[in-house]
Design a protein around this nucleic acid. Structure first.
Length: 283
DNA sequence: CTCCAGGGATGAT
DNA sequence: ATCATCCATGGA
């Protein structure tokens, strides 16, 4: 089954730190969209998708309906933004399942992308559901109910460290319906952010990631160490480091209604072009 | 070995 | 409101 996918770069999008469970297979990628195993392969302006029945979910997952040319045209014209946007051509903000996105970003704090991937894989293999696609196997992300039935010790054995307590507590709030993730979709941005921040292990940054990657809030502007570095170096030159409030205010004003896209482009560009640490002692 | 990573919670200024 | 410290773990 092939679906139309103009202005889209699958490999770039899957390598941009939004999701953490897709692996290269043949000429494409093997992963899961919600509860189903999926294989996706880019063929020019089309995507080859297996199985056939997942085509619609796949188009939604990768936000193939986002008007990318118009979104890019709406980004500010400053040099740093344009360089990042050029570098990230075809990168789309995905629509992830709410719980899966929330849980993975709770486990992301002070972790490199490579290790977030490892934590996600371990949780999936140990507590998710096995799904077959041809001769390949993938695992779904464990539900909030499944996590809620575990304990902190077993979660810590998945290399979660201090994040185990937060993931468990939030899973129990979600599983008990004390916090209804799907119902939060009706809330305006500020109320949604405030509600998400009441969850253990969720602060402003993680809340903004969940808003952007799972609630279609394209204004949400997560500020992690990479983005903060870019903002300080490119938009607040000179001495004196701006406060978190200053950064937040500037980002909301400068990047506008598609700030989330701007943020993702700045993040990915910085992460992929910043040279790895040179040998120690070089001055 | 050291430094750092898609931070959050808490308590002290 | 802003700052300092602690929290686990592993990649580079």
């Amino acid at each position: 089954m092939q679906i139309s996918a103009p202005d889209f770069d699958l490999a770039l999008t899957l390598d941009s730190g939004q999701t953490f469970h897709w692996d290269p297979l043949g000429k494409g990628f093997l992963g899961a969209i919600g509860e189903r195993a999926v294989y996706v392969e880019q063929r020019g302006r089309k995507l080859l998708v297996r199985p056939d029945g997942v085509a619609r979910d796949c188009a939604r997952y990768f936000s193939l309906d986002h008007p990318l040319p118009a979104i890019c045209a709406s980004l500010p014209a400053d040099p740093a933004m344009q360089a990042a946007a050029q570098f990230c051509r075809g990168l789309r903000i995905m629509r992830q399942p709410r719980w899966e996105c929330l849980a993975t970003f709770i486990t992301s704090s002070m972790k490199q992308v490579a290790h977030i991937r490892q934590i996600s894989l371990t949780l999936r293999q140990r507590f998710g559901k096995r799904r077959s696609l041809g001769k390949n196997t993938v695992f779904t992300y464990p539900s909030a109910e499944r996590i809620a039935g575990l304990n902190e010790t077993i979660l810590r054995s998945c290399a979660l460290g201090y994040r185990a307590k937060n993931l468990l507590a939030t899973a129990r709030l979600v599983a008990s319906d004390e916090v209804k993730l799907e119902a939060l979709d009706e809330l305006p941005d500020e109320e949604l952010r405030a509600k998400l921040c009441t969850l253990p292990g969720v602060g402003t940054k993680v809340a903004n990631c969940v808003m952007l990657f799972a609630y279609e809030r394209l204004r949400a502007f997560p500020i992690d160490v990479w983005v903060e570095r870019v903002l300080r170096e490119k938009y607040f030159p000179g001495r004196g480091k701006p406060t978190a409030t200053q950064l937040r205010e500037f980002a909301a004003h400068h990047f506008g209604e598609h700030g989330g896209y701007a943020q993702q482009y700045l993040f990915h560009h910085a992460r992929k072009t910043t040279p790895r640490r040179l040998s120690r002692g070089v001055r």
